[in-house]
Design a protein around this nucleic acid. Structure first.
Lengths: 133, 133
DNA sequence: CTCAAAGTTTACGTTAACGTAAACGTTATG
DNA sequence: CATAACGTTTACGTTAACGTAAACTTTGAG
């Protein structure tokens, strides 16, 4: 048997509140088992939660994150289902690659700027050294 | 003289509304010149707007985007200013690289999954071919 | 000159993603 | 066995990022 988690255990681990996890449940993102009233989270639920939070860090809304994550539990019994799944995966992949282009451009831009700043700084310090001689 | 832009020109180009651009002004992100009452946007304003929208696509809030973009117009006259600017750039760069790790992991994850789906599909179609013989 | 298009300010409305509080049941432990 | 810690539901509050509408001015084309 894999271990399970309480709501506050997961909240602590991911530095969020139980309220947030319950909200994700309301939105259909994570559907834990119940023992009586209490929610009991499986290892799979924990992974899904991690995926939701990673999606959020990348700028996806909860419903966008859900769209992506749900692909990982899509039905795959028939060839047709696998076909449409692969098409959807390709669509999402393109979206992610667009984001990567944006991100790479932002980083490259910043690197060029920082390089210019370092040159500028070297010039200024060069002048100071001359003045000190 | 570089060309200038009206608010609706920029709105059309970036597929947003004039309201959005004015809101960014309220938040201090873009500060166009005025001719009388009318806002007149420079080429630099247009670049800033593009940067704001790119930041949003990457999951930054408007104030986070502002923090980053403002570094590009930080004072650089003195060596000390350049030093602190370089430190801030380094901090933001690390943040961006963390995002890139998240993004790369997401894409790699999806690629592995898609590969398994294709294998699965090949198996299913193999069976169909045998049955057809 | 006229009038439609585009601009302005002000102000209230909306949605996503939670925060916060109340009112209550359950469980572990000293 | 009391009580503190944790859980539950329900419900109202909050903030960021705009949408929408009203009321008004400015400007370019005919």
């Amino acid at each position: 048997m894999e271990r399970t988690y309480s709501i506050s255990e997961l909240a602590r681990e991911f530095e969020i509140t139980p309220r947030t996890i319950r909200y994700y449940e309301d939105e259909g993102l994570i559907l834990p088992d119940r023992v009586g009233q209490r929610r009991v989270y499986s290892a799979g639920d924990r992974v899904r939660l991690a995926l939701v939070l990673r999606g959020k860090r990348l700028g996806f809304s909860l419903s966008e994150a859900k769209d992506i994550i749900d692909l990982y539990s899509a039905p795959q019994g028939e060839a047709g289902q696998l076909q449409t799944l692969l098409e959807k995966l390709e669509t999402k992949r393109e979206l992610l690659e667009e984001k990567r282009r944006d991100l790479d451009a932002t980083i490259a831009n910043m690197d060029r700027y920082a390089a210019r700043c370092r040159e500028q700084l070297a010039e200024l310090e060069g002048l100071n050294l001359e003045a000190a001689e």
